[in-house]
Write a protein that binds this DNA or RNA. Structure first.
Lengths: 145, 145
DNA sequence: ATCTGGATTTAGAATTAGTCTAAATTCGTT
DNA sequence: AACGAATTTAGACTAATTCTAAATCCAGAT
């Protein structure tokens, strides 16, 4: 799954009317360097290690701004929001043993051809799939539960 | 989508080692009578109207027990858990205008034949699809946003 | 009928994620 | 250097959920 370069991001952000302050860049950087869909609290903790005195409010504001600008996606899992910087539409896999959230290529389950209207007359604009089971690591260990 | 009768439920609960006390039954009943995936707080409010003095802890405990016993599913949307008593596997549609969550038959998007192992070696046990867009009611009104 | 122990429920305290607020800071423009 | 808009800050606040310790319920043994 494609990750954007710093330049791409800067330009993209600028083009959507969002200027990247140092704090905002630190947040974006961390999200792009992380592989495991961090929660807001994790972003807060890590960004503070790297760039002390970044307030919680800034982290939440920035995450919301980035989301609104379409620069990241929000995934709810297990009662917390997690954030995902991969922009190409894609799906997720959640491990029931360790809780890890992994990205899954969209072509594993493509849109049903030409289906824009569901039987209940709902107009579909996007969709996402959540697969659940055991990740490679947990599946390897003796079957749990 | 099939709803279970009181008898079915009782038996099902019993068979999974969960005895249905009056409070628990009230919660199950309300969930089955509701059409809109109530949140825990809504369950608490409504069950209390019907059966006063049911504590919040009991509502949350019961919801968790029922979930563990496989008698309902949890759906996260917009930062809150909502509960869904429909047991047949199915998908969801979320309206971006009014936020309503509707059930969608699974055959709209069936499992990719024989796909149990994803390319990342994850073992898939279940999956669910969330469609997003405008529901029939909101889609009817002049396009929003 | 009474006792007893385990399961359940209760009220409310505690925790946690997230939002809000008002003051301070930054920064581009004059 | 001064101004104003945007941003950030610390901390108060809110809402959802979990935890806790005491009270209640109930089935089986006496």
């Amino acid at each position: 799954m494609r990750r954007l370069t710093q330049q791409d991001l800067d330009q993209l952000a600028r083009s959507r009317g969002l200027n990247l302050t140092p704090q905002r860049r630190a947040i974006v950087d961390f999200l792009h360097s992380a592989s495991n869909h961090p929660s807001a609290e994790e972003v807060f903790a890590e960004v503070n290690r790297r760039f002390p005195m970044t307030s919680r409010a800034t982290v939440y504001n920035t995450l919301n701004l980035l989301k609104a600008a379409g620069l990241l996606h929000e995934v709810f899992e297990d009662g917390v929001s997690r954030f995902d910087p991969v922009l190409d539409p894609h799906h997720h896999f959640v491990c029931r043993a360790c809780g890890k959230v992994e990205d899954v290529d969209r072509e594993i389950m493509p849109a049903p051809a030409g289906r824009k209207l569901l039987p209940g007359k709902q107009r579909v604009e996007t969709y996402e799939v959540t697969f659940r089971g055991l990740c490679a690591a947990c599946g390897g260990r003796a079957e749990q539960q």
